[in-house]
């Protein structure tokens, strides 16, 4: 299997003019994601996991280190990566279809072709018949499906997902997790998925990366090693709980040492 995405020695510092200090948000983050792999990053809030995703997307420039997709260094957003945003961030003045074609429009792809491509992915996320609905006419789960279709239609090398199900209620979230795995198997994409929900990370992923906070760095990488396709019932199995406990332990350790270290809580939101 080939390496699809590689982040090497990512360091990110923010200058804070008010206190005249430099805040280290990410410190020496290394991560490799193989072609077709599903990798999640979990960690306490404020650990810099979303910031890391923004660096990978190229929205934030790293102070040091580099991000490579297929061995090519990337430093700004490009069509080889597409983000599924945390709050669906659909453009409210565009219908479902117009939202899904947005990225293609930005690339200057002809309208007819863009629409044809959009149709396929609107269908894949199960929203056929809703093409001409506006976002406010959709439920939260449906909005996230549009968000996903908008990224998938770009046919990116890597799909970057930033806590896409965080705002959904528990049942919808579980449904969406199952949906996502189905779509992932169908679309055969490499996925980097950010979440603070440990069970979500385990259920979805081949590997789970545990971040520790302030500054954000990789604490440990855990191989999930459960067969696919997975059903939601896997979450109730003993081996699942074992992995969950282990990750919980790592995060707890981190939180305890942070409280003991008594660092100021002025880290930017992750």
């Amino acid at each position: 299997m080939a390496v699809k995405l590689e982040a090497r020695d990512i360091r990110l510092e923010y200058y804070q003019p008010r206190t005249d200090t430099r805040l280290v948000a990410l410190d020496g983050v290394n991560l490799t994601v193989m072609d077709g792999e599903f990798v999640s990053i979990v960690g306490p809030s404020g650990c810099g996991k979303t910031t890391f995703l923004s660096v990978v997307d190229g929205l934030i420039a790293a102070t040091n280190g580099r991000v490579m997709v297929n061995g090519r260094v990337v430093s700004r957003p490009g069509p080889d990566r597409a983000v599924v945003f945390q709050d669906a961030s659909l453009l409210p003045w565009r219908t479902v279809e117009r939202n899904v074609v947005y990225g293609l429009e930005c690339l200057g792809i002809a309208d007819a072709e863009a629409k044809a491509r959009a149709r396929k992915f609107i269908d894949m996320v199960g929203l056929s018949g809703f093409e001409h609905h506006y976002p406010h006419e959709l439920s939260g789960g449906m909005q996230q499906r549009v968000n996903l279709a908008r990224a998938l239609v770009m046919d990116p090398e890597v799909l970057l997902m930033d806590e896409p199900f965080a705002a959904l209620d528990a049942q919808t979230r579980e449904g969406m997790q199952e949906e996502l795995l189905r779509i992932w198997l169908q679309a055969k994409k490499t996925v980097l998925f950010i979440t603070h929900q440990i069970d979500e990370a385990i259920y979805l992923s081949d590997r789970v990366v545990v971040f520790s906070g302030r500054p954000g760095r990789v604490k440990e990488i855990i191989e999930v090693g459960m067969e696919r396709p997975r059903r939601l019932t896997v979450k109730r199995e003993a081996r699942f709980h074992a992995i969950e406990d282990r990750i919980w332990g790592l995060i707890e350790e981190d939180l305890k040492s942070r409280i003991a270290g008594d660092r100021p809580p002025d880290t930017p939101r992750d």
Binding site: D57, S89, L91, M154
Partner: peptide
Amino acid sequence: RYLQVARSFSASELK
């Protein structure tokens, strides 16, 4: 957040 979406999709300034 909408501006971020646009930047992430490499939208031009005019776009």
